[in-house]
Structure formats: structure tokens, C-alpha cells
Design a protein around this nucleic acid. Structure first.
Lengths: 346, 346
DNA sequence: TTGAAAGCGCTAACAG
DNA sequence: CTGTTAGCGCTTTCAA
């Protein structure tokens, strides 16, 4: 199947490639009739412009890169979905790469994306990234980067985030409002900022309500797994018989807690309330269903693309990017693992 | 940051671009010394070839397209992950598009991918696709397509699949082997082939074991949702008090069944066994955990890319593609929603 | 062992 | 309104 090129169209019509190009691009200085002929022929021959050539010429690929820590993950696959949706509207395609929380991979992925002349990159930092030279290099090359979810304050670029601290504060406050006084917190690894922020939010909520912070109520969770939650639940109960709330930094862990509590015949939420974080799909199917903080992946993905798009346009106009920080609101999703709020609202 | 091009390197070194290109590409007819100088300069200036130009010249993009029905889905995100992993090894990047089970979107996605000069396409048919002209067009254009998961026998292309019929047969057989005799089947929409095949597998297993097929035990499930399972579970019990097994065509639905059964105080697996299909992540966290058929998304993704890669190479050599059909094996994952197999094995 | 030249397909500036 | 020309960055003859 010999490919249909501009040149060929031109030859068939007996006009120049330039004219054909303009006709196809709806330039104003083209005879209506010529334009019609071109358009018709193009359609009938099913002409597709060669985007490689276009890209080479115009110095843009209409492709953006998306670097994601882990694809098989409810939150991140929602992000992908949001990005694709928003990108589609503007005629952009998405190349996806997975960093697996590895700094090395992140670095090499950025390189690959630059090689492919992407017009911009969406990046969520890997947990092991502590240096940012590779990112600055990309930006210096004139390829805009927007960071989402896991970001660094040390990079000057647009960002799309949630306020983990506030979200965790609200979650803890919710537990308190529904009557909990002795609330354990299961936190993640020490490093990632999100984990730290959620921990701070937890502490702040306690402080605000004059509940003394008790370090022994804070449990460190190595992996982000169901099993970790399952194990820790037992520990919590052993250590603190009178605990009445658990706030886990992520749903999966909370789910493990739920399961163990049921096995231990600890009633949720009457004896102990449990609060997760993220609003993964699975929170709807546990028994009891899990109250959690909704982390809007889809919206983040959409927003991230839109910011990036704006930055791309800014850059194309030769202007300097003014980084935007966009915060996507989160909210509590009350389900059955927490008690009802008292009617008398503040 | 002015980009480093071949030309620039050539100028700096006082040699021709052609020579630089060859040096970089390890051509044999280049002076060792020249080569070294080129390589060094290239590295020190961090030269990256412009892939658009390369692509234009060599007529290949080193990008492949992946059309997926739905990204936010455990099975499919595993596929993505597998594809990316395999593609990475061969230096390919992946553009992802989501069809949302829409024929129109599928069609337009294929067009976009062709426009972007992808070297090949991985496609899982949307449920609403009944015509295949758009696919044949792509193949005619010389872009190889490999279909995975949801395929059509009417297309001559390589395919990566599981044997749904066999898998469903085994699942049903497993229920029978563990003592079930009156097994309900929750099936999906009428159209998709997978649904039909699973239904056939179910029937065949009954026949094989001399259990009479009873159409009233087959329930049609509109959506692929937890709620559907939840609703249907009640119906099953109302219609058939003595049912002792349920085989759902997908895990999510089975999970809904599990939940409703618990509410109805129907013991799983002692009174009724429940078997799902897919081995989604969530099957490990339900109560009881859900026995299911493992559907290996990651492996399918890897395999799909590899077949596509072979087809791309074949085509590049000017040979004709001989379609391969690759079947990825499935297996039963026994968990706690089914009874144990009797010790005396056949 | 090197380089000049042509061209992949498209577009933009400019001339007619 | 249309066409000529030049060139994006790279590769590949082919001649030197």
C-alpha cells in the first residue's frame, strides 16, 4: 500500500504540494474551489499526514510522556485515565512509563522521553529520588514538566497535588468527632513526603482537640500491603486494649486491619473505628465498608495535563513559564467502619 | 539551550555530518580515532539523536500503540504493565488509548495511531465492535496488529488469548469435584465472546458430569459490577433454595454474591460455594477469600508485545506475517469460598 | 576512510 | 490565489 503523501496529491491534482498543504490547513489564501478539490481527493484517498515529518518540521510531536510509579494501582490507573481523557481533547497522545519507585528508572525514562521529542512530561517522583538534576536537565532543554502527587519543593515547575496534611487532619478530626479518643495511626515508610504529611495531619488534629500525642500509638508499616495491616492490627490491640480508632495512611492497610479485627471479634466501628486513605475501589466491598479520604486521581490526571498544556503553550509563545501549584480538594467518604456523626453539628 | 545536532558535532570536529552519523552508528569503515573523537564529543555534549528525524528517515517510530477497553481495571492494568515491561527491553515505547468499549472510539484511536506512525498496534476489541474494516485497513497499511484478550476470528492477525471455555469448564468442574451438584451461573452480556465461551464451558462441565442443564440457573448480569452480584445473589436463593454452587463470570460480581450471602446468613462455602473468574486483587481480601480462575494479564501483555515485535521484524524483512495464536494457560486458585478437594484424587 | 548530495514528508517565507 | 525554494535532522548511496 503505497502511502499517500502531499506530493502525490499535488501531482494528481496538477498543483504544488505547498498549495495542497495550505488547502488542508485551511489557509485563507486558497481558492475555494481548489480547496474543495484537495479536500475531496484527500478524503477519498484517505490521506493521513505523516506526523513524523510534521513533527520534524514544526518541532512538536503532540505526544506527552507520563511517568508513573506503579500502574497496577487504583489511584494511579485513575490518574492515567484522567490524563488520557484530557489529552485526547487537545489532540495529544500519551506515552506511559513506569518507574517502579526507582530513581534510576525515572532518570532513564526521562531521557527516553526527551529522545522521543515529547512536548512535555508529567512526573510523579519515585520514592527513592533524592536528586533532581535529571529533572532540571529536562526543563533546561525546554521541555516543560508538571509534577503530580509526589513532588519536590526543590523543583521549580507546575505541580498538581492534594494537601495530605489537611486531608489527614480531617480524617483524624472525623474520628474524633464520631467519639474516638484513643486513635492509633499506621504510617508508611519514613521518607515519602505524603507519609510524613499525613502523620503531621494526624498529630495536628490530636493537638487541636487536646488529645495528648502518644508515640506508642504510631505504627510503622514497611510495605504498602494488606498483610502489613493484618499484622499491625493485632499489635495495636495487644499494646492498647482500649484503643477506639485506627487511622491508616492507605486503604489497603486499613483493609488488613478490618479483616484482623473481625477475626479477633473486635466490632468495627462500635469498639474501634477504622479510617483509610485514598478511596480505592476495594473500600466499597469490604465488610464493613471502609470510611476513607477520597483522593481524586482522575481529576488530578486531568488537571495535570491541563496545566502542562498551558505550560507548553506558554513556552511555544516564547514566554517564561510561571509555575502553578494546583491543589485538588479531598473529602471524607463516611462508610461503615466509622460511627455516625452526632446530629448536633457545631 | 540550543539542541545538539549531528551537524553541530560535525562542525566542531571539522568533519562531515555523514561521518559523524556513521561513527555514532558503529559503521565499520570509520577510522578508529575519528570514531573515538566523535563518541567523546557526543557524550560530553550529551547528544541525543532527534528521533523524529530518524523516524522520518527510517520509516519507523519505535513506538507501538496499545488500545485497551478500560484502564482502571485490575486485569487490564496488569496487561499494560506487562506490555511496557516487554517493550522496554526492545527499546519500544507505548502509547496508550482507551476505547471504553466503544466501536467509534476504537476506530478513531486506530486512526490516530496510524497517524503517529506507530510500528504496530496491540488491540483488545471493544464489546460493541462488530465490523472489522477499520482493523483490516490498518493491516493493509502495513502496520501489524496483534489482538489480545478480546479477539475476532474474522481477522487474520496474531492473537494472544486465554481459553475461556476451558477455564470455565475447569472452574465448574472444580465446584463439582468439591461436591456441588446444583450450580448457578452468572453470565455477562450476551455479546462478548468471552462471556459466551465461559457459559459454554460451564455447560460442558455439567454435561460431562451428567448434571442436567437447567436454564433457570443461569442469570444474566447487565453490568460488570459488585451491585449486580449483590442483587442476583438474592434472586438465586429465592429461585433455588437448594443451590449449592455459584460460578460467576467475573470476580467483582462474585464478590457481590459473597456479601449478600453473608447478609442472608448463607454459609460460604458449606452451604453454597462461590467461584469467580480473573483473580483480581480484591479476591484476596474478601471474607471469605474468593476462589477464582487466574487470568494472567501481565503475562498476556508481555507475550502480546513479543508476538507483535516478531511480526514487526517479519514485515521489515519484507516477509509475510504468519499469524500466531498464543494461548496463555489459566489455572484455578482455590481459596476459601469453595470447599476442599477430597483427598482421594482420581 | 571520508564527504557531497539527495531525500524522507511537510511547511513557511516569499515571489509571482 | 499559487508555486518556488529552502530546510527541519538524519541516513545512505556513491564518488572521491
Amino acid at each position: 500500500m503505497p502511502k499517500v503523501t502531499l506530493k502525490k496529491l499535488a501531482k494528481i491534482l496538477g498543483i504544488s504540494p505547498a498549495t495542497v498543504s495550505k488547502a488542508l490547513k485551511n489557509y485563507p489564501d486558497i481558492n475555494e474551489n481548489t480547496k474543495k478539490r484537495v479536500l475531496e481527493l484527500a478524503k477519498s484517498l484517505n490521506y493521513q499526514p505523516n506526523s513524523l515529518a510534521q513533527g520534524l518540521r514544526n518541532n512538536e510531536s503532540k505526544i506527552i510522556g507520563l511517568v508513573i510509579p506503579e500502574i497496577v494501582h487504583h489511584f494511579f490507573s485513575n490518574i492515567i485515565s484522567g490524563v488520557i481523557k484530557a489529552a485526547e481533547k487537545k489532540g495529544y497522545l500519551i506515552i506511559i512509563l513506569q518507574s517502579n519507585e526507582s530513581y534510576e528508572q525515572e532518570k532513564s525514562h526521562l531521557k527516553k522521553l526527551m529522545d522521543k521529542n515529547v512536548d512535555g512530561i508529567l512526573l510523579s517522583l519515585s520514592d527513592t529520588t533524592t536528586e533532581y538534576k535529571h529533572i532540571k536537565q529536562v526543563i533546561d532543554r525546554g521541555i516543560p514538566i508538571v509534577m503530580y502527587d509526589k513532588i519536590s519543593k526543590l523543583i521549580s515547575a507546575s505541580k498538581v497535588i492534594i494537601d495530605d496534611q489537611k486531608a489527614a487532619f480531617n480524617a483524624t478530626q472525623y474520628l474524633i468527632d464520631t467519639g474516638c479518643r484513643k486513635i492509633a495511626h499506621i504510617r508508611g515508610d519514613l521518607k515519602p513526603q505524603t507519609t510524613i504529611d499525613r502523620f503531621i495531619g494526624y498529630k495536628k488534629a490530636l493537638a487541636k482537640n487536646n488529645i495528648e500525642f502518644d508515640a506508642s500509638l504510631v505504627y510503622n508499616c514497611k510495605g504498602l500491603t494488606f498483610n502489613e495491616g493484618y499484622k499491625i492490627a493485632k499489635k495495636i490491640i495487644n499494646d492498647h486494649k482500649d484503643v477506639d480508632g485506627v487511622f491508616a495512611f492507605t486503604d489497603l492497610v486499613a483493609t488488613g486491619v478490618l479483616k484482623r479485627f473481625r477475626e479477633l471479634d473486635i466490632h468495627v466501628p462500635n469498639q474501634v473505628s477504622v479510617m483509610g486513605f485514598s478511596d480505592w475501589f476495594l473500600t466499597k466491598i469490604t465488610t464493613p465498608t471502609l470510611s476513607t479520604v477520597h483522593q481524586p486521581g482522575y481529576e488530578m490526571g486531568q488537571e495535570a495535563f491541563e496545566v502542562l498544556y498551558r505550560d507548553i503553550c506558554t513556552l511555544k509563545k516564547g514566554l517564561k513559564i510561571i509555575p502553578e501549584i494546583i491543589e485538588i480538594p479531598t473529602y471524607i467518604v463516611p462508610r461503615n467502619s466509622t460511627k455516625k456523626l452526632p446530629k448536633i453539628s457545631k
